[in-house]
Nucleic acid binder design. Structure first.
Lengths: 132, 132
DNA sequence: CCATGAAACGGGTATATACCCCTAAAACCT
DNA sequence: AGGTTTTAGGGGTATATACCCGTTTCATGG
């Protein structure tokens, strides 16, 4: 039993749950990561790559590349602001529609995971997340 | 508080903990994923890509590519077996040494994560893992 | 107003991961 | 023994992620 690497368990849990969400979201051509990004941009209305990276706790270059994918799919567009270094990201019309279509699919996945794990383990996930 | 996506929490937890292990393992030039792979190969002595994929619960192509990285670093080598389709993976001498050097670093990370999370949340991780 | 420093981003490189399709080889069934 | 099916891998493509470095642009202090 020495192979109980907590990291490995968490990585596997993340992969497995991601696969569930991805399976539902595939119906509208989104991944979970993309859905979360769209959601955060929608929530903020408009925000820069650095701001989004901070909000997601991800590296700036990661967000930059993920945003490029969303732009390629015409879900997100860049608008220049006063600052010549930054460009603000915001949803396109298509992006808003896609996000709206994805929401119930996301909820289905969320509910499925809830029922797989049960309330105690759901609480535990929140606690683990808070402790890191 | 509707942003409590369990998948997102798990993904973030996995990233954060991986970063801790990776930081320690960087001293011997390994990532956590590579360490786990080396460990599984060492344990088995010799096994095929499909067997390793099954053992890791990862896609075969993922393991194939990860194994290529390990071969590039001379940590793993392929040996042909009777079956012309398969090639068995096994550690090189360097791979065994690297793995031995990495073990205490892995343990340091493991202990650090244990103390960050505490016994209850450690138990919860195991439970979550089992439920998926 | 200019020099220096800080902030924002892009690109290069590397890894991890999955899906799909193709080929080769073995196994299996007449 | 030969045709069919299954198994094993490889390669293509796509995404997600991080680190480092270079460039541009802003801010700030003299």
């Amino acid at each position: 039993m020495d192979s109980l690497c907590y990291c490995d368990l968490l990585r596997t849990a993340a992969r497995k749950t991601t696969a569930v969400y991805d399976r539902y979201l595939a119906e509208v051509g989104l991944t979970l990561a993309q859905y979360k990004l769209l959601k955060k941009i929608d929530r903020a209305g408009e925000l820069s790559i650095s701001e989004l990276a901070a909000a997601c706790d991800l590296d700036r270059s990661t967000i930059g590349r993920n945003a490029q994918v969303l732009e390629k799919h015409d879900l997100v567009e860049e608008t220049s602001c006063g600052d010549g270094r930054r460009c603000m990201l915001r949803l396109t019309e298509l992006g808003r529609h896609r996000l709206a279509a994805a929401a119930p699919l996301w909820q289905t996945a969320q509910t499925e995971i809830e029922s797989m794990l049960g309330p105690d383990q759901i609480k535990a996930i929140t606690a683990i997340s808070g402790a890191l």
